[in-house]
Computed example of a mutant assay.
Amino acid sequence: MNIRRFPLTREISLLVLIYLYVPVVVLVGYSFNANRTATVWSHASLDWYGRILVNPAIQSAAKNSLVLALCAATAATVIALLAALAMSRAFPQRGGVEAMLKMPLILPEIVVAVATLMLFVALGVHLGLGAMILAHTAFCIPFAYLPIRARLEGMNQSYGEAAQDLYANRFRSFRRVTLPLLWPGIMAGFTLAFVTSLDDFLTSFFLSGPGTTTLPVYIFSSIKAGITPEINAISTVMLAISVLLVSLSFFLGRLRR
């Protein structure tokens, strides 16, 4: 078949990629700048990375981000696993329930953040780390659900049936057969949920309380006084962690054994 292609498709795609990634490359490069002024290059240095490691405010924000992401990703993965197992069975409202599970992927994050804040205020929920864990768990569920659901759909159902033929009950069949086969999808979903929670700004900004500042909120507060190589160094570290975890999720999702 002769497929007519839009002219200059390759060139336009290249320009879009340059527009998206050149600023990131510049940010990473200037994180090694020894000059206090972020936009004036003097010479290469790792001093800013050393400073962020001993900064108490950054350490506190990093701890809050890690605790938040770990708790939210774990809870979201457990809920997503149960939801994926339920969705594997046919029932009348399955399409509507699955659409509701994927809804956080469609809704604008600012709308979800404001609505969550109003709900928590109306219910008298204390804003802080606990409120952020609840909110992050809710919007991380679809990120954990999709890899698990895809892995479950690709599984051969005859394994579970064979286990039951060998007198294994449902729980034993799940623990010894289904769960090991689902493990790559579970880890991929957990990794995606962890990265999503770690990088989130809007929900954390609206729901954070005293002493619960996360790294994205700390960066936003710091750039009000001007961008420094220290901010570039923090952003580079977060970028490296995100790329590493997303790559790990991709490879885990492709495992066949």
Rank of each mutant, 00 (worst) to 15 (best):
G189H: 09
E153A: 13
P104R: 10
A115D: 06
R89W: 11
A73S: 15
N33P: 04
G189K: 08
S88V: 00
L134C: 14
I12W: 13
D47Y: 01
L146F: 08
Q93H: 01
V111M: 14
L14D: 10
Y30G: 08
V78H: 10
A122K: 14
E230A: 14
L182D: 13
I12L: 15
P147M: 06
L81T: 15
F143W: 13
S13L: 15
S235L: 07
L198V: 00
D199R: 07
L15T: 12
V67E: 01
L134R: 05
L207W: 07
V177L: 09
G211W: 00
I223W: 02
A38S: 14
A113V: 06
V40E: 13
I223K: 02
T213M: 03
A138Y: 15
P147D: 10
H126D: 14
S88F: 03
V121A: 13
T116H: 01
G209L: 10
Y19W: 12
M187R: 07
L68N: 09
G154W: 06
P92F: 10
T203G: 03
F139C: 12
V26N: 02
G130P: 09
A138R: 04
S60V: 03
A138D: 04
T191E: 05
P56W: 07
S65L: 05
V237Q: 08
L166Y: 05
G185M: 03
S42V: 01
F194W: 14
S13H: 09
V195Y: 12
P229T: 12
V125G: 03
Y19F: 14
M100Q: 05
M118H: 08
L117S: 05
D199I: 01
F205V: 00
L8E: 06
Q164T: 11
T196G: 04
Y49I: 09
M118L: 14
G130Q: 10
G209V: 08
V24D: 02
L198D: 08
S222T: 11
R172Q: 13
R254V: 06
A150R: 06
C140T: 13
V97T: 03
V246F: 01
T203Q: 01
A38C: 06
M187H: 02
F194L: 12
A61Q: 04
A113W: 02
V24E: 02
L179D: 10
L182I: 09
R254F: 05
A163F: 07
A57H: 12
D200H: 05
S208Q: 15
E153G: 04
Y218F: 15
Y218N: 10
G160V: 07
R89V: 13
I79V: 15
L248Q: 01
L66V: 15
F206L: 15
N35I: 00
L239N: 08
S221T: 13
A144R: 08
A57F: 08
L146H: 03
W183G: 00
V246D: 00
A115M: 05
R175D: 03
R36Y: 10
S45F: 09
T137V: 13
R257Y: 08
A193Q: 02
L182M: 14
I110W: 00
V54C: 01
G96L: 12
R5L: 15
V121Y: 00
Q93M: 09
N64T: 01
P108C: 12
V246G: 00
G154Q: 09
I148T: 03
